[in-house]
Amino acid sequence: MVELSPQSPFRDPLPFKQGRASLTENQPEYISAIMPHQGQETALSAVLKKVHDLSLPPAGQSSANKHLRLLWAGRGTYFLVGEKPPDRALARVASLVDQSDGWCSLSLDGEDAAEVLARLSPLDLRLKVFKPGNTARSELQHMMALYLRTRSGFEIMVMRSFAHSALHHLKEAMTSVAAQNRIAG
């Protein structure tokens, strides 16, 4: 009997490094959309605490434990990202949808990460505005994206079919920023 083998959403080799920025692929095993049923946010929060030891983050924020992160991912939507799928107990208070293969994730790190991203996203990326742990839905060069600010840079998620375009534009921006920094000395 045939067993199908999985494949990365990215065609081009990673990691990629230019100047003071680097781009690496994240391969979370599970990405699960959690959408609370009407009026069930508090109940969801309680169940999350119990089964995953995670709190329900407010808009634009995230929570995390050792194995899982819970990202606010838009109106009424949270993404549980990590090694485990959501506990079925959550299904009583929320709709659960597997998005593990619907989104791909990249990490853009380094001193110039924000400079690079400023080429592709209209977000206010200043550290005092977009802090580590914050999430934002915005565009990445015409693509819908979910951003997470990390201590070292950004995690950027786009829908899987856009993987190649996202990578292309990020690499171009990294190359351009590195060249501009060289002349700035």
Partner: peptide
């Protein structure tokens, strides 16, 4: 109406 929906276009081949 208590309904949730999300695109799964990219999740499925």
């Amino acid at each position: 109406l208590d309904v949730n929906f999300i695109s799964i276009t990219d999740h499925w081949a």
